[in-house]
Design a protein around this nucleic acid. Structure first.
Length: 290
DNA sequence: TGCAGTGTTGCTTC
DNA sequence: CGAAGCAACACTGC
């Protein structure tokens, strides 16, 4: 599940490897993932010969700025992840050259989209469940598209004061609010559980019932957990991999997510799993009392 | 064996 | 309007 730390990891890896590269050709076997422009042929035509000039992140979106001023937006959703391989020209046709160790990992074999680049590299999207979306936006439309996203949790400008304002008037439980991309952008199920454990706040806590001290703890834990996760290149409990195919190293640092029945590392109480609005939530019933 | 569980987003429903 | 439910999809585990 690529959330903010995984998307940030991908973006930093991409900057090192594909900045300045030119898209020579594109292959796709699941054209429904290309949402804009509507036709794949048009998408291919518009991307061909364009240079990748800028790479950044907004929430969970990967953004590639192109030499014609347009931007390629990739949202990996649940199981999508980008991988960097190589191609070679055989009998006048592109052929993907797949590094053995990378594609020996079963999560890396669901290739549905390939960008053939000008230096013999290929940037591919592996996505088991095929929920990922890819869009090509004009500059002025992109701003409109991203407008609904809330602030970036790690931006310096997202102060505790701004955080409290974002929580103001919320009628849902704190876990739901942290995961709402319009409130703040980039947090999903894994990191909301980990942040609330770190803050010792119960995920079922009604947001309006958080006192200043608790809100501060959630805010501080949010910064701490997200930065830590970025430093170790994200989690790989499920499908996420770095573009090299390597796993992120957050998994052993995970305190509660998917640890139902295991002992809380703080107090030894068994971690429980419950549901909030149809999604699983993991927490320590002792450390995180309502 | 079959079916619930997995979790992001956007659309539909209430 | 806001919140809940469900579909998009495919594989795993019970």
């Amino acid at each position: 599940m690529p959330e903010l730390p995984e998307v940030e990891t991908t973006v930093r890896d991409l900057r090192k490897k594909v900045l300045g590269r030119i898209v020579e050709d594109i292959w796709c076997d699941f054209k429904k993932m290309i949402k804009k422009p509507a036709s794949f042929e048009q998408f291919k035509k518009e991307l061909k010969s364009k240079k990748i000039r800028k790479i950044w992140r907004r929430g969970k979106n990967i953004l590639l700025g192109l030499s014609d001023g347009r931007t390629l937006l990739i949202h990996q959703k649940l199981t999508g992840h980008l991988l960097l391989g190589e191609w070679e020209l055989k009998k006048g046709e592109w052929e993907a050259k797949i590094p053995g160790p990378l594609f020996a990992d079963p999560t890396n074999k669901f290739l549905h989209l390939i960008f053939f680049l000008d230096n013999g590299q290929m940037l591919t999207l592996s996505d088991l469940r095929k929920f990922a979306k890819v869009e090509l936006w004009d500059k002025k439309e992109l701003g409109e598209e991203l407008k609904s996203l809330g602030p970036e949790p790690l931006e310096k400008s997202f102060t505790f004061k701004k955080f409290k304002e974002a929580l103001k008037g919320q009628k849902r439980k704190i876990k739901q609010v942290l995961m709402d991309q319009e409130v703040m952008a980039g947090i999903g199920n894994i990191y909301s559980d980990e942040i609330l454990f770190e803050a010792k706040v119960n995920p079922f806590k009604e947001t309006k019932r958080l006192n200043n001290k608790e809100a501060k703890k959630v805010y501080t834990a949010m910064g701490k957990i997200l930065k830590k996760a970025i430093a170790v290149k994200g989690e790989s409990i499920s499908d996420f991999r770095r573009i090299s195919g390597e796993k992120g190293e957050f998994d052993p640092l995970r305190k509660v997510y998917r640890r139902e029945g295991e002992k809380c590392p703080r107090c030894g109480t068994k971690i429980v799993r419950k549901k909030i609005a149809g999604r699983s939530v993991h927490f320590c019933p002792q450390c995180q009392k309502v």
